[in-house]
Design a protein around this nucleic acid. Structure first.
Lengths: 246, 246
DNA sequence: CGAGCTAGTGTATTTTTTACACTAATTGTG
DNA sequence: CACAATTAGTGTAAAAAATACACTAGCTCG
């Protein structure tokens, strides 16, 4: 076992890409670093994983320390391990991304952060370490995920209008969507509860407010992973590949 | 910086899930471990990442040492970092998966491997470390990928029949497919070159042989990431979300 | 009370997916 | 040498999903 000692000189960190949505714009939470390395630069909130801490737990801790949020959507995306990515030595980082409702939380800058601030994803410039790469990978993942699962709701306040939801999708996918088709599709999923309330104090026709139906969402996820129910058309059923492309 | 010294006592490894396809069956290459820990047990080929080695390079090295193959399909999947997953200390592992043509390589058991052998994915039992979890994650990724990109070809010999290709998809997706629809879809992608040859020495009508068109595949990938060409139906074009579900 | 603004709605067309059954070409056997 | 066994290969109709598209409704503010 002594032959392996040389390998036990590395460290790992987690970095969180925390997305939020505000003013029709997709945002990411960045911190202004208060510590070396890259003190004074903007970067992703992240920190070393403690020796007795699981990776997922570390990601939750970092997020919690910074935002005060617990139990939010958090998912591992990719690990970055270029040899020279950290000036202190060999440090690989595991990137996580999470989606939060901006209005739900208050920033609590932690030890490494002088301050934390939302930045428009489209306008993020030069970040510490390889954090631009990490942000990009997480953004791609978000784009993919938003087409696959109805995660968009994680980013909106509890009550929202269909137009707000559409703007969110447009911001993430970076493409305009057709209003009628969007509504048709969203409503056909039966994941929204019509609150039978409308906006107030807006200088135009007020929109209906909706709420996300978490119960149905759980069913949706469960179904999505089990096989479809349309089995047994004949005795022996023959499916075709269902994805958009093989 | 001394305050960080405690963090620099960890190690990381890469583990490769190497898929192959033979006899109508999806296989994974496992090694019988010759070294502690878990000596004598079957596990995934993997090793420590050297201090001056990038993660991707380490994965390629491990694959190359074992199979002699370079420049094959290899992709990072997920990082596993439970605190107690390695008996020697804190070791996180980055899982990669790769797709190879079984016929292309010869097994070269490396230092850690007493022997290497193909195992049917469906029948893999108790592996060293958390390698069952890793294998499962990679298998799920393969399932997803096979619906998204035409990666199936990576697993087949240079010349193959449509039936062989279909069997491959059926093995990965674990579901039967309709022959005519499968052929229609595959051929409509224009990624196959009809070699105008047929099988020989088979006791039934011989099938046509096809070859994968790498040039068109590269175009396919490029297009897949750029926007579709059907832009500008009107001056201002309004798309609908295109995924199967939002 | 009208101008300005956003909400909200339906349908026809096109594209994609699905279901489904018979004939063709080869080898091995009696 | 024909016929049994086996896998290859083919087309179409119906259903479902995606797309394109334009007007009326309801609120505030001046």
């Amino acid at each position: 076992m002594t032959e392996f000692n040389d390998f036990f000189k590395s460290a790992f960190t987690v970095d969180n890409v925390i997305f939020g949505f505000d003013e029709g714009d997709l945002k990411v939470l960045l911190i202004k670093r208060g510590e070396a390395p890259y003190a004074g630069k903007w970067g992703l909130p992240g920190y070393f994983v403690y020796p007795n801490e699981d990776l997922d737990a570390a990601a939750e801790r970092v997020l919690g320390e910074l935002t005060g949020l617990r139990h939010v959507f958090l998912e591992q995306v990719k690990t970055f391990g270029a040899v020279d990515r950290h000036p202190f030595g060999r440090v690989i980082t595991v990137a996580y991304f999470s989606l939060i409702k901006i209005t739900d939380y208050t920033i609590q800058p932690s030890s490494i952060a002088q301050k934390a601030q939302w930045h428009s994803v489209a306008r993020v410039k030069d970040l510490a370490f390889d954090h631009n790469k990490i942000l990009d990978a997480c953004f791609q993942r978000l784009k993919w995920m938003v087409r696959t699962r109805p995660v968009g709701f994680e980013l909106l306040p509890p009550k929202f209008t269909l137009t707000e939801l559409q703007h969110l999708y447009e911001a993430i996918l970076e493409t305009p969507l057709d209003k009628r088709n969007f509504r048709k599709k969203i409503l056909s999923m039966n994941l929204l509860i019509d609150l039978e309330e409308t906006q107030e104090g807006v200088a135009h026709r007020p929109a209906r407010l909706y709420q996300f139906d978490k119960t149905k969402y759980r069913e949706f996820l469960a179904e999505g992973f089990s096989f479809e129910l349309k089995e047994s058309k004949k005795k022996e059923r023959r499916n075709m590949v269902e994805g958009s492309s093989i």
